[in-house]
Every structure is written in C-alpha cells, then in structure tokens.
C-alpha cells in the first residue's frame, strides 16, 4: 500500500512539473508581453520597457523559468505582476473559496442524485425512472450561465430571498457564508445531478442483477439489508470515480459561475492571470488546481479500493 501511494505521489509530482512547463511555454506563445498587457496598447513603449525591466520580464525565458521554479520548490510562489503583491495569499484565499462552493454543491448534489439514481433503478422502466432520468438530462444540458441568470432573477431580483453576490460580507459566520453560497451552488447541482444519478442508476441496476444479490435475496435477507449491504455498496463504485473527476471542474472550472455570482474562486483567478500574462499567478493557480486534481484522484482510488475488496486485496498482495 505504501509503495502504491509513493508511486502515485511521484507520478503526480512529475505531472505537475510538466504542467508548469506547458503553462509557461503556452504563456510565451501568446502575443504581447507582460508590460504591454499591464499598461495597455496605448502606453508609451518606454513605459512598457521600464515596467518589464522592473518585473524582470525582459530577461531570457529560461532564466525567468529557472528563477521561478527554484523559488517555487522552496515554497515561494513569487509576486503577482498585476497586483504587485505576493501570490500565495491570493491562491490560498481563492482555493478556500472554491473549496467552500464545491463543498456546498457536493453536499447538495451527492445525496440527492444518489437517492434519485437508486430510486430510478428500483423502478427501472417505469414512469418514476423515466421522469428522473429526463429531468436529470434536461438539467445537465442547460449551461450554467443560463440557469444562473434565471435563478438570480427569480430568487435575487424578484423574490429577494437570496443574495445575488456569492461573496459574503466580512465577518460572516458559517451560516452567513452558506446563505451566500446556496444560489451559486444550484446551477452546479443542476449540471451534475443528471450525470451522477445516471451513474448511480447504472451501478444499482448492475448490482441488482448480480449473482450475490440474488443469493442474498434467496437466503432470505430482508430487502433493506440487501439494498444497504449488497446493492448500494457496489452501486457507489462508479459514482465515486465520477465525483473525483468532477472535483477538478468544481474547483478550477467555474469561471462563468464565479463571474456571474461575483465570487473570487481559483477558476476566475487563473482566467484573469492568463489574460494579463501574470505568469507567477497563472503558474501557481494552475498548479494548485493540478494538486487538487491529483489529490482527488488519489483519494478516489483509496475510497474505490476500500469499497471494492478485489482492488484492495490486489494492491496488498
């Protein structure tokens, strides 16, 4: 098990390093330079040159990259070109914000879609199943900026039940933050619901059909025990991997939701950094999301092996 973990961590580190090289190179391919991006097209060339010199962005690329990575491995993420301040607090704050929003969305969508997926499987082919699946599919295909605006108009502008901005006022407690995060979480729930419910339904159907379930039923176990101990455990397997792959999306891919609900998550931070050629911020942001993704898939593997004895025993043999 330790070897398995070690191997996974080493692979993740190599992936992250490659990611940093790709982001750096891609950033250089884009036209324009940092000073120009900061001061705009109409700034005097002397001003642009002076700014590039001040930030060190007039040095050869390899020198810039070497300088950056040698600091980075020592734990110094560098200073943002745009905000002229250390990158770390921005990343930490944005990552925490993204995690909170993702957590609220997960807390809403996972129990709901699992329950609905299992319910659909238990009534496979009947109207309950059909309506859950159609509703799920319909919700998934509505883009989040459409559902987001509709939700804001209904709950924020007309009814005024929920705040339009996901950014809570300073000093807001747990419930205050939750109150601000409810509205932006709903479009995410809508997007993910259909997907997770389908996986749960498929897993449940497969488990219901399996020999061990038939054996459990035949040996006279009560239906609830069969469901909880034999069916659900197996039905969850594909769902776990879906959730793990969606974590990266929920943490790093919510630029639209974050823009619409005025929320400082890591997705929009990366997007803005890329626009401004703010390389230290961009690198740190992408690597942060990369880390989240690596950790999420590692966790998913661990949970998967815990739920699935075949893998667990295979790994320890």
């Amino acid at each position: 098990m330790a070897r398995f973990l070690l191997k996974r961590v080493a692979l993740s580190l190599i992936t992250l390093w490659l990611l940093s090289v790709i982001v750096f190179t891609a950033g250089q391919v884009l036209p324009g330079n940092v000073g120009r991006a900061m001061l705009g097209p109409f700034a005097d060339q002397r001003a642009v040159d002076a700014l590039n010199h001040e930030m060190g962005t007039d040095r050869p690329l390899l020198v810039q990259y070497g300088d950056w990575i040698s600091r980075f491995v020592q734990g110094d993420m560098g200073r943002s070109y745009a905000y002229r301040a250390p990158v770390a607090p921005f990343i930490a704050n944005a990552l925490a914000n993204s995690a909170k929003l993702a957590a609220v969305a997960f807390l809403l969508v996972v129990p709901l879609s699992l329950a609905m997926g299992v319910l659909a499987a238990l009534h496979a082919g009947r109207p309950v199943d059909r309506s859950i699946m159609v509703a799920g599919m319909s919700a998934t295909i509505v883009p989040e900026f459409v559902s987001g605006i509709i939700l804001i108009l209904i709950f924020g502008v007309w009814l005024r039940w929920l705040p339009i901005s996901a950014t809570w006022p300073p000093g807001a407690g747990f419930f205050g933050q939750l109150y601000h995060l409810l509205l932006p979480a709903i479009p995410l729930v809508l997007i993910l619901f259909g997907y997770i419910a389908r996986m749960a339904r498929a897993g449940t159907l497969e488990a219901l059909d399996a020999d061990y379930t038939r054996t459990a039923v035949l040996k006279g176990l009560p239906q609830s025990t069969v469901l909880w101990r034999h069916v659900l455990r197996n039905a969850l397997l594909p769902t776990v991997s879906v959730i793990a792959t969606q974590t990266a999306y929920l943490i790093g891919g919510l630029v639209v939701i974050e823009t619409l609900f005025r929320y400082q998550g890591i997705g929009s931070l990366i997007f803005l950094a890329a626009n401004k050629k703010d390389f230290p911020m961009l690198e740190a942001g992408v690597l942060a999301v990369g880390c989240v993704f690596a950790v999420a898939s590692l966790l998913a593997d661990l949970i998967y092996s815990w739920l699935n004895p075949r893998i667990r025993f295979g790994a320890t043999e």
């Binding site: 001061l39 109409f42 700034a43 005097d44 002397r46 001003a47 642009v48 002076a50």
Partner: peptide
Amino acid sequence: DPANGSNALS
C-alpha cells in the same frame, strides 16, 4: 520620468 513606466508618458 521614463524610468517610472507611467502611462502618462504618451
């Protein structure tokens, strides 16, 4: 002062 990289230079 050009050394300060001000946008006002233009």
